[in-house]
């Protein structure tokens, strides 16, 4: 299974997937920490987190898969939502909570 297939499987089998640096308990980047906090503020605690620092192939693979150059990246129901700035904006205007309730 190549890396794109692994990612495809991750985002299709888990409703909420966050590709991040570090873990939700110990984020290794301020933007990733912010993404975890936003999910938590939306009441989502049991999302599937992928630590890209633990796997260089995933780290590059997710950038290619999404055509998105930065980490973190949020997927909801298999769809790419965006990075932490987009999450923050969508949190402020209420869109993220609506999306996560589906």
């Amino acid at each position: 299974m190549d890396i794109a297939d692994s990612i495809e499987q991750q985002v299709s089998t888990h409703p909420v997937v966050l590709y991040m640096k570090g873990t939700p308990q110990q984020p290794q980047c301020g933007f990733s920490a912010n993404a975890v906090q936003i999910l938590s503020a939306c009441g989502v605690e049991d999302f599937f987190a992928v630590n890209v620092l633990a796997d260089p192939e995933i780290r590059q693979g997710i950038k290619d898969y999404s055509s998105w150059p930065t980490i973190p990246q949020l997927y909801v129901n298999g769809e790419f939502v965006g990075g932490s700035d987009i999450m923050a904006e969508m949190f402020q205007n209420g869109e993220l909570k609506k999306l996560l309730e589906k």
Partner: peptide, 19 residues
Amino acid sequence: PLVARHRLINATLTNEIIH
């Protein structure tokens, strides 16, 4: 949408800068 705006900026900045 925001994703499209960010993609536009990323494309405008080029990979050379982004990377």
